[in-house]
């Protein structure tokens, strides 16, 4: 098994609250891994740690076999993150924001312009290119977050509830994008409450609850272990066990 990310004994506490407790798992290279769990299970905290947004308390993380160093920039070039929270600088235009992100990732001027135009058109945001982010709808902000997370063509992409607020058309577009990433062997970590999406796209799943990893494997293995015939039933069975 070729791992993109290896996590060993990851622990994070917020005061007295154990957000993640001794979590260990692997994310396989080139696959879509569904990272699922109830609200407050520790999904976002894990992803934030892997992206350097918060610090872990204990544990080891390796990215493509190399020990992860939060201060090393090379890991950040390899990773893209589409967060759940819509925190974006509100008073920039879409174009300004994407240029900023792209430049920080060292994308050349022409390539950046091409990519921005391509993705804005793909998500049907081309006409809003010079609009203020504050004027966008929630769904369009989400599209912008998706674009900014993938603009630098990362090898590993973390999606935390990426379809939040997307309309039907946006959802189709996003699913297209996901298929495309799969074809290009990108490693995807997909965190969501929407079981159907995970069931359809995830090749491996990780179930987390109350900061503990409850299951790691394929959906088939989950069904076998829980002796259930449906994925959602198997998920509930594991979580409520």
């Amino acid at each position: 098994m070729d791992s993109a990310i290896e996590v060993k004994n990851l622990t994070k506490n917020f005061g007295k609250v154990k957000a993640i407790s001794n979590a260990s798992f692997n994310i396989e290279r080139g696959k879509i891994t569904g990272y699922i769990g109830p609200n407050g299970a520790g999904k976002t905290t894990t992803i934030n740690i892997l992206n350097g947004i918060i610090d872990k308390d204990e544990g080891e993380i390796s990215i493509f076999g190399e020990k992860y160093d939060k201060n090393s920039e090379k890991f950040k070039y390899k990773m893209g993150y589409v967060p759940e929270s819509q925190y974006i600088y509100q008073h920039l235009t879409l174009f300004e924001y994407l240029v900023f992100v792209g430049k920080i990732y060292n994308i050349t001027k022409n390539e950046l312009r091409e990519k921005i135009d391509h993705y804005l058109d793909f998500f049907e945001l081309g006409s809003s290119k010079n609009s203020m982010i504050s004027s966008l709808s929630k769904g369009n902000k989400q599209k912008l977050l998706i674009i900014s997370g993938i603009l630098h063509d990362p090898d590993i992409i973390f999606f935390d509830e990426p379809m939040n607020g997307l309309d039907i058309n946006g959802q189709f577009k996003f699913k297209d994008l996901l298929q495309n990433f799969k074809r290009h062997n990108k490693t995807i970590v997909y965190s969501s409450h929407i079981i159907e999406i995970i069931e359809k796209y995830a090749e491996k799943i990780i179930i987390i609850n109350k900061g503990k990893i409850l299951f790691y494997g394929t959906i088939g293995e989950l069904l076998e272990r829980t002796e259930k015939s449906a994925f959602d039933e198997a998920f509930l069975s594991i979580v409520n066990d």
Binding site: G52, K74, S85, Y87
Partner: peptide, 10 residues
């Protein structure tokens, strides 16, 4: 915004 945008960037 700084936490979410800047910390994940190199």
């Amino acid at each position: 915004e700084d936490s979410y945008i800047l910390l994940r960037l190199p």
